[in-house]
Design a protein around this nucleic acid. Structure first.
Lengths: 182, 182
DNA sequence: ACCTGAACACCGTTCAAGT
DNA sequence: ACCTGAACACCGTTCAAGT
């Protein structure tokens, strides 16, 4: 049995990745654990503190899963395929979206600290993709820069539509289109 | 001065495109117009009725803006550029996201009728892109199918990040990457 | 047809109080 | 340190009542 703080983070992450910031309620978290909502505030004073903590933990796990920096000595195609597979397996196993994708599209209603946390996670992902596309070398050019953004944006968009239509083929098709253009 | 119903639709669309479904409140709409929230329910009995009406009107305007079906006799590159520009000019002029992109990433918390409305709007967009990529001919193949999905997903994702970072270059970069791979 | 006030169960947040 | 009950202003929704 994880401690209360970890339970709160787990449940909050699930709520946010399911339906966004407003779908994550202190009262529902409390009910699921079996405490009162005021007790959740003891661990995370305000909702933005909880969201920032969820985002930090999520980013750390995501980076650990990918390997950081992008593992050298592999072909760019393999690394890009690995990146795509993170999204595809998340959808296949849990149906949960990327925390980042959900919160990005809600950014206007997020506290600024939460926005900044999500923004730096996006940056980290794009840097990873640029490393992967450069194949471990130091070269960076406009094509790599734009292509990394394209891949990241397309996966976020495809994840959203796959969840909307409950159809993993959207993620499959976009992953294939990405790999074909390498 | 538009009628009350139109005012409600206008304000609701702005709220949803700013921060999603939960960011759109009957009470706030009512306050902005100068009536009571119970009066808004006279025009739209439940929130899902309002959301469906907003989605229908939005989809109609979007299609009218693009020209439907994709105007024949133009080069695919020009038509794809046109599609990208819809997103870029929406961001530049109003900072508002695509209604669809916002609601897609929240789909788990939407009433099913709203989900279906958004899903069919996505379909219409992809069909438009497939027509554009096929250059007016009847030919459809896997590459066109996947590419249309890639373009749509990438623009939705890029819009989300552009709003998160308040940086239109994300949309510019992704539009360029899309045009380069044609 | 259009609007309102009042009620209901929800929400985040605060705070004094308990252990 | 961790939890609670009670209060506050918010939310969608309903409904009887007004014009």
């Amino acid at each position: 049995m994880p401690d209360t703080r970890t339970q709160i983070l787990d449940i909050a992450e699930r709520f946010i990745r399911t339906g966004g910031y407003n779908n994550c309620s202190f009262r529902e978290i409390a009910t699921e654990i079996g405490i009162k909502s005021a007790s959740v505030h003891h661990h995370f004073p305000a909702k933005q503190d909880l969201a920032v903590a969820v985002a930090r933990r999520y980013a750390k796990n995501f980076r650990a899963g990918l390997g950081e920096p992008a593992p050298a000595g592999k072909q760019p195609e393999q690394q890009i395929a690995l990146f795509c597979d993170v999204f595809r397996s998340a959808f296949a196993s849990s149906g949960l979206a990327c925390l980042c994708g959900v919160l990005s599209s809600e950014s206007a209603l997020l506290p600024e600290r939460v926005q900044q946390e999500i923004a730096s996670f996006v940056d980290a992902n794009v840097v990873w993709l640029e490393q992967a596309l450069a194949g471990g070398s130091k070269k960076r050019n406009k094509a790599i820069h734009q292509n990394a953004r394209l891949i990241y944006a397309a996966l976020q968009g495809a994840m959203a539509v796959a969840r909307l239509k409950q159809d993993s083929r959207w993620l499959d098709d976009v992953s294939l289109a990405i790999s074909h253009q390498q």
